[in-house]
Design a protein around this nucleic acid. Structure first.
Lengths: 236, 236
DNA sequence: CGCGAACTTGACTGTAGTCAACCTGCGTGG
DNA sequence: CCACGCAGGTTGACTACAGTCAAGTTCGCG
């Protein structure tokens, strides 16, 4: 919730939410496509992918979620059309009942807005993914995802030169709409700039990576508006 | 706001929002990419497209908005990363100040949730677009968009056999990540099922169109949960 | 040590892109 | 009222990026 300003009381209220730990095995589907749920899940460790699929069962990953992300917060207000969720490696999630989230949002408008804003960051990323998959070639697509995940995995710190990204080349293809074979060839072409090995991304040249990846981090940045923008205005 | 249940008082409060009418010429950019705004806009008539673009300026439409849609409601809580907005034909929009939206959301939790839910429908559509652009061939892609817009243009009525869709083949290509030339060829191949002419889509065979378009409307359906799901639970 | 998942490589194919020419219909201005 | 211009649509020939298929190879784990 670093993306919004909350008072201590609000922060305590969030930390007091009832949670239930759940450990997912690598490759385990946590939420099946079109499944309805009454919990939202916070990724505590590991990594999950959200995905959609065609009627033929071909999967398309639509989002990656790192520790700290609510992977399906949107389901709290709209439990349909969330897509499936799949653990990319052994992952611990904390399940929070929708009812508790909604009750909290009702009581604290600033929390409602913080949740809403969090969902809107996801939406901005999704828009960027449409552009990525639709308009960029294989090198740019993959480099772009590596840039995005570098920023998101680094939190407020300096950009990490290496970060965990426990996906197979096949899964990276599911995220970029490429085949595993072509991901492999593309990674080879990028090897001077970035490598994916043992479930980690190693960035050798960040400047070149952002250039190849046609990457501008604006869409990921926290709101840079005046501070009060991060909180709801007092009720009129 | 038909997607949520609101009391009369809440409905009146929404209708009392300060608005400012604005008429956009066809092809006019209303919001430039990366532009920050302090208004959200409701489409009153006509049609707009939201778009992203690569650094080379190639555009990718990420959403269409029909009358009744808030095209950039998400900007109320997160004014960055919205992308650009372009009028596809002469369009009237109603601009509503972010401040008013946020004040209303703060005062009426059910309205906050209705706004949030509305944004989440957009997000669900966006996920479907990633799948569409990433995983489907040209015929399926175009047919899928035609299906989506048929449902959204029909509102609660029966599905219209003809509905306004004032886009050029080139713009349809910008939405489906195809070139204008290929859109043209694909439309020809689909002409027994659906045609795009004079700014309207004519559906000749809805059953076939959904089959060709690999279309399942679940992601667009209003929440089918028990009624109270459509409103925030009373504050604990 | 042996199995299987993931990765690697090569040869060939196919869908959609590119380029270029031409057609059509509409709105404007002479 | 006609003619011009132009945006949008249509078609053909050729190209290219990524997909497909198939045969290895490597590596980690039981």
């Amino acid at each position: 919730m670093v993306r919004s300003l909350l008072t201590e009381e609000e922060q305590h209220a969030i930390l007091a939410l009832p949670i239930q730990e759940l450990v997912l095995r690598s490759k385990q589907d946590y939420l099946h496509i079109n499944e309805r749920t009454t919990y939202a899940c916070l990724v505590a460790s590991g990594m999950v992918g959200r995905f959609g699929q065609t009627s033929e069962g071909v999967r398309q990953i639509t989002a990656f979620h790192v520790p700290g992300d609510m992977a399906d917060l949107l389901s709290a207000v709209r439990p349909v059309g969330v897509g499936g969720i799949n653990a990319l490696c052994e992952t611990m999630v904390l399940r929070v009942p929708h009812a508790a989230i909604r009750a909290l949002a009702s009581r604290y408008p600033a929390i409602a807005e913080a949740f809403w804003r969090d969902c809107m960051l996801d939406a901005a990323i999704l828009m960027e993914w449409v552009v990525n998959v639709g308009r960029r070639n294989s090198q740019t697509r993959i480099a772009h995802i590596f840039c995005e995940m570098a920023i998101r995995s680094s939190g407020d710190r300096e950009i990490l030169k290496e970060y965990p990204f426990p996906v197979t080349q096949e899964q990276l293809g599911d995220a970029t709409s490429l085949t595993g074979v072509h991901v492999n060839r593309t990674l080879r072409a990028l090897r001077d700039v970035v490598t994916l090995k043992n479930g980690s991304v190693q960035i050798h040249d960040w400047a070149r990576l952002t250039r190849v990846g046609d990457f501008d981090a604006t869409y990921l940045t926290a709101d840079t508006a005046p501070e009060q923008q991060k909180r709801l205005l007092a009720a009129a």
